[in-house]
């Protein structure tokens, strides 16, 4: 057992990638399966517990989990030598693994983009971290909500591609 071998470091980056991914998708599913459906049932005077305390902390771990996942994922794909082939979905390479991981990487990248460029900037307006007029807040909430739902939908095929590439294709 060699702890400084390239194979060990590749395994270590895969482990960090999975840890980061759980941090990210765990919070994504918390927002979509727990927090958002619960908000209408919470009495108005108790809502600030979510909007002022829980949501900002959850969003912190959510967006940085997304960042750590894409960074460790790209390093991992580079170390494994399939980054280039996966980016072009393995087309022409007749390699089902690279096609599968490529789809997973593209889906994950779209989701990462949604987190940093749609969900987070709009959630800052919704939560009052940056000032916004009421109608602007409403619109921001709609965009952030739909981007979050889109990511929940995409997480299902994304995980098929990721796990499939590791264990089947």
């Amino acid at each position: 057992m060699e702890f400084v071998s390239f194979a060990w470091w590749t395994m270590a980056f895969r482990w960090l990638h999975v840890i980061s991914g759980i941090m990210w998708i765990g919070h994504l599913w918390y927002f979509n399966f727990v927090q958002t459906p619960s908000m209408p049932k919470i009495p108005d005077e108790q809502k600030p517990a979510i909007t002022k305390f829980i949501a900002p902390t959850a969003l912190f771990w959510f967006r940085w989990g997304a960042m750590a996942t894409i960074v460790t994922g790209l390093i991992l794909a580079g170390m494994n030598g399939y980054l280039g082939s996966a980016i072009k979905l393995g087309i022409g390479d007749h390699n089902a693994h690279n096609t599968a991981i490529g789809f997973g990487m593209w889906l994950g990248t779209i989701m990462w983009f949604n987190v940093w460029f749609l969900i987070w900037p709009n959630q800052k307006k919704v939560l009052g971290i940056v000032p916004a007029q009421p109608d602007e807040k409403k619109r921001a909430g709609r965009i952030a909500g739909l981007a979050s739902r889109t990511n929940t939908m995409l997480s299902i095929p994304m995980l098929y591609a990721m796990v499939g590439a590791g264990h089947y294709y």
Binding site: A96, M153, P157, Y169
Partner: peptide, 30 residues
Amino acid sequence: MKNPLDSLQSTVVLGFVLTVVLILLIHAIA
């Protein structure tokens, strides 16, 4: 028309439908 992503249930169903599409795409390409 109502956006299917407004419903959590439809979102999950669409996720599984997209997975079937993905499986077919992987097999078609590879």
